[in-house]
Design a binder for these strands. Structure first.
Length: 270
DNA sequence: ATAATAACCTGAGGGC
DNA sequence: TGCCCTCAGGTTATTA
C-alpha cells in the first residue's frame, strides 16, 4: 500500500496522539510479520514515547528506552483507537497507553514489520543503506544524473530503488514519469541532466501534492484517524490503462517492468 | 558487482 | 455457489 505520502500521513496522524504517552503494555497477537516480532516488546512497560518521525517508508517511534521501527509493507496500517475497541482479524499488535488509548498495527498480508532497537534507528541494518530523501535538497538533478550513469536498467526501476531515492513506489513512479514526459523504459544512463531536472521536479511535486491530500487510497489505506486519502482522484496514469491520455488523447499503454504494472503514454513519454 | 526473478502473504474480483 | 486465475501502495534473498 503505502508509499512516502501514505507513510507521512500515518506518521503525522499518530504523532500528537502518542507523543508523551506512556506504554502500559504491548500486545502481540501475531508475530509472523516480515521479520518475527521480538518478544522483548512484551517486557516494555512504563516507557514514554518521545518522538515520531519518518525515514523513507519507515516510521520511527522513539521512546525513553529505544526506538520502534515500523514498516507498513503493502497492506499495513496504524490506527489510534480507544482501548475498548475490540480487535479484528489481522490486528496483530497493540501499543496500549496509560491514558486508555492504543496504537493498533493491522496488516493482512504481513509484509510489514515492527522492530525494536536500543541503538540509533538510522544505523539499523535495514535503514543504514537507504538512499536520499526525495523532499530534501540533496535530491537534485546533479545527484540523479550522477547515479543514473552506468545504470543499465529502466529509469522507472531506478527511481523505485530505495538505495537511490526513498519513498517512491509504483504509483508515484508512474505518475512522476508521466509528468516529466519520460518513458519508464528509458535506460537510466540515457537521461540528460535536463531530463533528471524534470524528473526530480516531478517526483517532488507529486509527493508533496499527495501528502497534502492525505495520500492515495486504492482499496484499504486509511490514516491513523481512519480517513482515506484523496489523491486517487488526481492520478493521471495509474489505473487508467486503455483510457485516453489527458494530454494527447491516445490510449494509455500498460506493460510490466520488474513485475510491476506500468502505465504510460507512448506518445507523450519519450 | 550488477541485474533479473522468486519469495514472502491474504483478499478481491473476474471468468467459467 | 465454487474453483481457478490474476492482481495488489514493498522489500529481501537467491540466482545468473
Amino acid at each position: 500500500m503505502p508509499e512516502l505520502p501514505e507513510v507521512e500521513t500515518t506518521c503525522q496522524g499518530i504523532r500528537s496522539a502518542v507523543i508523551n504517552q506512556t506504554i502500559r503494555e504491548i500486545v502481540i497477537r501475531e508475530s509472523r510479520l516480515r521479520w518475527p516480532v521480538s518478544r522483548a516488546l512484551l517486557k516494555l512497560r512504563k516507557i514514554q514515547i518521545t518522538n515520531v518521525s519518518r525515514r523513507a517508508k519507515y516510521i520511527l517511534m522513539q521512546s525513553t528506552l529505544g526506538s520502534f521501527i515500523i514498516h507498513l509493507g503493502m497492506s499495513g496500517r496504524l490506527c489510534c483507537l480507544d482501548e475498548k475497541i475490540p480487535y479484528q482479524k489481522h490486528d496483530h499488535i497493540d501499543f496500549v497507553f496509560d491514558n486508555g488509548t492504543l496504537l493498533r498495527y493491522t496488516d493482512p498480508r504481513r509484509f510489514g514489520a515492527v522492530l525494536w532497537t536500543t541503538k540509533d534507528p538510522l544505523k539499523h541494518r535495514y535503514l543504514a543503506k537507504l538512499g536520499v530523501e526525495p523532499l530534501l535538497p540533496v535530491f537534485n538533478a546533479h545527484y540523479l544524473h550522477r547515479v543514473t550513469q552506468n545504470k543499465q536498467q529502466p529509469i522507472k526501476q531506478l527511481i523505485m530503488d530505495q538505495k537511490v531515492v526513498v519513498g517512491v513506489g509504483n504509483i508515484y513512479a508512474n505518475e512522476a514519469l508521466y509528468q516529466a514526459k519520460i518513458s519508464p523504459l528509458r535506460y537510466s544512463h540515457s537521461l540528460s541532466l535536463n531530463d533528471c531536472a524534470e524528473l526530480v521536479r516531478a517526483i517532488r511535486k507529486i509527493l508533496t501534492a499527495a501528502i497534502k491530500q492525505g495520500g492515495t487510497t486504492l482499496r484499504d489505506f486509511l490514516s491513523a484517524k481512519g480517513k482515506p486519502g484523496y489523491f486517487k482522484q488526481k492520478l493521471l496514469v495509474y489505473g487508467r490503462q486503455g483510457m485516453a491520455c489527458l494530454h494527447c488523447g491516445q490510449s494509455l499503454d500498460v506493460i510490466r517492468i520488474q513485475q510491476r504494472t506500468t502505465v504510460y503514454c507512448s506518445t507523450c513519454q519519450i
